[in-house]
Design a binder for these strands. Structure first.
Lengths: 113, 113
DNA sequence: ATCAAAGTTTGACCGACGTCGTACTTCGTG
DNA sequence: CACGAAGTACGACGTCGGTCAAACTTTGAT
């Protein structure tokens, strides 16, 4: 069975601003969200090239999932991640967009084209 | 002289998203920002009725000031606080408004009229 | 059947942050 | 001048969050 491998995702209406901000305040997690938004596609955990070990990466993905920012599901051995942009924007209008825009600006300032 | 009592305020263009988010992630500080925005007026530190001691309150006001979110100045013995809304919104468009709106919604849900 | 790839889980560590109490400073007022 | 009000400065303390390494699980491929 594949029940245990499909983790729980919180309903959007149960999310708190506190949780969302705590998730977005970490630079690593914010880079995941921004990257996911730029890609416009679901991405596997491995494709992020994060500056931390695997176990730490797992930790960050769980924080994001529990905050309601991403949805996770398995495709073979790879765990896919989808940004729950529209759902979040429904509950916290403009928030995610503003953070992502600001993060993109900051990143491009650090790593210019 | 009154030089030492007028603290430094960072230029808006030196602010980082990281600093701003770190400032806004604390509930006490967020309540200060939200209150300041609702009041549409500068407020003295004492008028916030925060659930922490005086020294902790001073700490929070400093974090907000160094993040560029508020401007502080003295009026007699009282220290006044002004929200730098327009300046912040210029650098991080929509961010502060979205956070405040979400925070107001959360607060009204906890303490209904 | 074996093996490697991809994540997870667990436990430990450490530095940072929020908190407090106390002492101190500065200003207005009786 | 003396006193109280309003904050600030300084340590100290406890907790929580990000980090890692090592062992484990599950899946796909050989």
């Amino acid at each position: 069975m594949e029940g245990d491998r499909n983790p729980q995702h919180p309903d959007v209406h149960t999310l708190t601003l506190q949780q969302v901000l705590e998730a977005l305040v970490d630079p690593v997690r914010r880079s995941i969200v921004t990257r996911l938004h730029e890609a416009r596609t679901d991405l596997k955990c491995g494709s992020f090239d994060l500056p931390v070990g695997k176990s730490t990466a797992t930790h960050h993905f769980r924080i994001l999932r529990e905050a309601g920012l991403i949805r996770q599901y398995y495709a073979g051995t790879a765990r896919m991640n989808a940004l729950r942009y529209a759902e979040i924007d429904e509950v916290f209008p403009g928030l995610l967009g503003a953070v992502i825009a600001a993060d993109r600006a900051a990143s491009s300032r650090l790593a210019p084209a």
